[in-house]
Amino acid sequence: MTSKITNRIALTVIVLCALVMTATLAALLGYILYHGLSAISLSFLTKDSSSFQAGGGIKNQLWNSFYILFATMLFTVPLGLCGGIYLSEYAKPNKLTQFIRSCVEVLASLPSIVVGMFGLLIFVNYFGWQYSILSGALALTVFNLPVIVRVTEDALQSVPRELREGGLALGVTQWHTIKTIVVPAAFPGILTGIILSAGRVFGESAALLFTAGLSTPNLDFSNWNPMSMTSPLNPFRSAETLSVHIWQVNTAGITPDIQTIANGSSAVLVLCVLGFNLFARMVGKFIDRKLTGKA
């Protein structure tokens, strides 16, 4: 009898754990969206932020976030893809490969603030790029690289060996086989992983504090000359991203509407990340269906 009762109790506890987890998410999302959605308006999204008065927007921060994300992906995707291809296709089981695997593991588990400090040391000070979009993007590249490498390697590993043999047996070189057959076959998985990692990069803040900076110069959105200091495209200007903005407002903000701005910004940030998630799933499914000829 007792074992039955224990069983009942233990299983109930397990169910409760799952409920707590789901409830946590529901509460988090509920809180953010409930408080945040009312703060989001067109003017909030399209106005400059204000340092002292109420009513500031997040236009620049939003732009910076996407710009840094884009720059980061520009660096990470080719590097990460090739790294993943190396580990999956070329790496022989030897010491060097083990070492590279360890390096990926180390990169993946370094605290992001350490990556930020490295960025400060190298990109900001040593190369003299100051707090800039470029420094921030390069720091985030270090932060995101191991993720893309792993995603790529996993996706490639799930491609059946027969496809590789099929390519090689046709007298196609290994690199060309990988380029035209294996990578395309793994593409849905890789793309899904890349988009998900984009969500992670978009929300990252600690690595950007000392690399992209805490402020944005006045931007003139009609000036698209990347060399000009007021141009939104200038990669050498400092740039506060949306997630850094949330932190900044909460710890050092002095405007009267801190709460509203924080609520609104958090909601925008979470919605963007959710958007990335949803987009990743849809794209993955869509391409998968197209490749297998079910569409």
Partner: peptide, 24 residues
């Protein structure tokens, strides 16, 4: 189409990974 070109990319990336860890 050469295997070499591919290998330069691939090994280059592997080196970047190693270098970043060592540099940090």
């Amino acid at each position: 189409n050469s295997e070499w070109r591919g290998k330069i990319w691939i090994y280059g990336s592997a080196i970047v990974v190693i270098l970043s860890v060592i540099a940090i």
